[in-house]
Design a protein around this nucleic acid. Structure first.
Length: 421
RNA sequence: GGAGGGGUCGCAUAGCCAGGUCUAGUGCGGCCGCCUGCUAAGCGGCUCUAGGGGGUUAUUCCUCUAGCGCGGGUUCAAAUCCCGCCCCCUCCGCCA
């Protein structure tokens, strides 16, 4: 969520942000009107309440019965006005809140302007694409051929877009998660074991609701929503907290499955294990002081790059343009790996500076010094990494002529296998 | 699922039965000052958050409103009474 005071004082900043994102600027005017009316009515309401409060106290002190009754009648009249105004202010509040929830974050000034994902900017490409002496197979053919990847049984169990791994492939999956977590821990992140469901208010605070309601799975009886990413509970951890400035930055990491109800048509985009309704991911998350968030974003990207360097998989870093930037983010880098079998660059990680957007929604603040005024923290999130797509990259890059797969050197002690045959 | 106890301004507690000087008291902790060769003790003062309005203008000041787990209700007035919900503790039942 954005700062209402910023919109009140410099609406042009918000209009410009929306224009850069290829969005309509009309909500800004609606918000300005609602805010002005709300404040005017609120002042009236509070003045009446002050009147009631002092009158009530006076009644308490009065000795004479007749006098008291006259006074009570007067307050009853005030109360009718208070009720009406209270209802009105409540409605204005709700409308304003809803409009504010819909507004996206303001892109950083240096984010490239562009209309959509075709105008994202490749910052760098690292590693050389392997030359194959044979035609590399896509992972879904390779895995099926080996008998360790079973799409039919996934559908049998849970319907379309689910699959089952087994044997060495299941082991690779588990070992990869373990290695990723250890990688982050070694670089100063603290691991968390989190609930895979959160309350609606946590989803709202992280900016997942109300926007992505139709993409989330949830329990209709309890207030419990399946997480689409560990970013949600990692944000919720410190909801309503006032952190100690000396403890910042906080670097967190967590593994969770992710549940996303993305209703895409079957075809190239959903073939294989690229885009299931459920997938594993190790997430990285930072809470920091506002002045440090740009540097922390760079640090996080460096941490992610190190994973890919160690896995020895060619990758490239893209900076998203304003037209493709997620609503929460002010600046995002996508890391993409080369998958020779399907012949695509695959997004395995997306690292974003969210600045104070989630902190304001979730009310997460810090104090620079004891007694100092609380300020909103900045938060950042990044995947480190999405597991299925990393598996695709490993399978397809490390495949050998007779349909077996070499296990990347760094993973061998985790997977306890040198090869998947 | 049942019975009982509980949730109060960092922590601990009082206030609730008998609604109104509760502007929520006290202790601990924390901050500032005094005293002091130094430290400790002692003494005095201060202590949360959000929002609105006003004066100043990028320090701060004045004032009002709201907040005692959450949401409703009763009342001129609710920490206090009533209803619903959530969470924690103890015991019982159920399931592993």
């Amino acid at each position: 969520m954005n700062d209402i005071r910023l919109i009140r004082e410099k609406p042009e900043v918000m209009r410009e942000a929306l224009a850069k994102r290829q969005m309509d600027t009309a909500p800004v005017d609606r918000i300005l009107a609602l805010d002005e009316e709300r404040r005017a009515k609120l002042s009236e309401l509070e003045a009446l309440r002050a009147q009631r409060n002092s009158a009530s106290k006076e009644i308490g002190r009065m000795k004479e019965q007749a006098q008291r009754e006259t006074m009570k009648d007067q307050v009853r009249v005030i109360n009718i006005q208070i009720d009406a105004l209270d209802t009105l202010v409540g409605e204005l509040d709700a409308q304003l809140q809803e409009a504010m929830y819909e507004l996206p974050n303001i892109p950083d000034a240096d984010v490239p302007i562009g209309k959509d994902d075709s105008e994202n900017v490749v910052i760098k490409t690292v590693g050389t694409l392997r030359e194959f002496a044979f035609t590399p197979l896509p992972h879904y053919e390779l895995g099926t051929k080996l008998g360790y990847l079973d799409f039919e049984r996934g559908v049998k169990l849970a319907g379309t877009r689910f699959y089952v791994t087994s044997g060495p492939l299941a082991k690779l999956q588990r070992g990869l998660i373990q290695w990723l977590l250890d990688h982050h821990i070694a670089r100063g992140y603290r691991e968390f074991g989190l609930p895979f469901m959160t309350k609606e208010e946590i989803m709202l605070g992280a900016g997942q609701l109300p926007k992505f309601r139709e993409n989330l799975y949830h329990d209709v009886e309890r207030d419990a929503w399946f997480v689409p990413t560990a970013e949600i509970p990692l944000t919720g951890l410190h909801m309503n907290d006032i952190l100690n400035g000396d403890d910042l930055p906080l670097n967190y990491t967590a593994y969770t499955p992710c549940f996303r109800k993305e209703n895409l048509a079957a075809g190239k985009d959903t073939r294989g294990i690229k885009r299931g309704f459920q997938f594993d991911k190790v997430e990285m998350y930072k809470y920091c002081k506002p002045e440090d968030s740009e540097q922390e974003l760079q640090n996080m990207v460096a941490d992610i790059e190190d994973i890919l360097v160690q896995l020895q998989i060619p990758y490239r870093v893209k900076e998203l343009c304003t037209g493709d930037l997620g609503a929460n983010s002010t600046k995002t880098y996508d890391l993409e790996v080369w998958a020779p079998g399907i012949g695509e660059w695959l997004e395995v990680s997306s690292a974003s500076n969210v600045r104070d957007f989630q902190a304001r929604r979730s009310n997460i603040r810090f104090r620079r010094a004891p007694g100092a005024k609380p300020e909103f923290v900045h938060t950042l999130n990044g995947s480190g990494l999405g597991v299925p797509r990393t598996m695709i990259a490993i399978l397809e890059n490390y495949q050998q002529e007779d349909d077996w797969i070499e296990v990347p050197q760094v993973l061998r002690e985790y997977v306890r296998l040198d090869a998947i045959k």
